[in-house]
Computed example of a mutant assay.
Amino acid sequence: MSLKATLQDEQKAAMRAKDKFRLGTLRMLLAAVKQVEIDERITLDDDQILSIIVKQVKQRKDAAEQFTAAERQDLADKELAEIEILEAFLPQALSEQEVASLIEAAIAQTGAAGMQDMGKVMGILKPQVQGRADMGAISAAVRSKLA
């Protein structure tokens, strides 16, 4: 079953359970998916939907940090609860050892020798780690290996 169908089924389950918070979060996610589909006039596959979920999680993390800095813990808690709901649809996160081995393999595969080859390495890594690891941390790790 596709990820979009799973999201729609979860939305129906939240409606039946009268879980308003979960329902609102799922509706927001499905609206973001629908918006991209309408804007680009395409039907999204699972990888594209995963990238939307990752983007939504990142936005909520940023918002939670800002709310915490503004001493609005109630709003930060709401954002963190939404993150938990969204992360349930992401694949299993990679461990640090798995990330390190993927980076080593990508560097070996591209024959990268320095910072000028970082784009090649990241191009290979991005589809492998999409939604399973923080791309900022991956980028920093690749940069330190190539420096």
Rank of each mutant, 00 (worst) to 15 (best):
A112K: 00
D77P: 09
I124W: 00
P127C: 10
A137T: 11
S95T: 11
Q11W: 13
A32L: 14
R16F: 05
A141I: 13
G131A: 12
M28I: 09
Q8M: 15
F67Q: 05
I53E: 06
L7H: 14
V121W: 01
D39V: 14
D117T: 03
K34W: 02
A70R: 01
R72A: 05
A32W: 04
S2I: 13
E96Y: 11
D74Q: 12
F67R: 07
D19T: 12
A5V: 12
V54N: 01
A70G: 01
R22N: 05
M135G: 00
V99M: 00
K61E: 02
F67W: 10
V121H: 03
M28H: 02
I103E: 05
V33M: 01
M15W: 08
A140K: 12
E96H: 12
A112L: 10
G123S: 01
V57W: 00
L26F: 01
L125Q: 00
Q48S: 15
M115Q: 06
D39Y: 09
D39A: 15
R132V: 11
I49N: 09
D39H: 13
R27H: 01
Q92C: 08
A69K: 14
E37S: 07
V142S: 07
S144W: 10
E82K: 09
R72I: 09
V121L: 05
E84R: 14
K18R: 09
S139K: 15
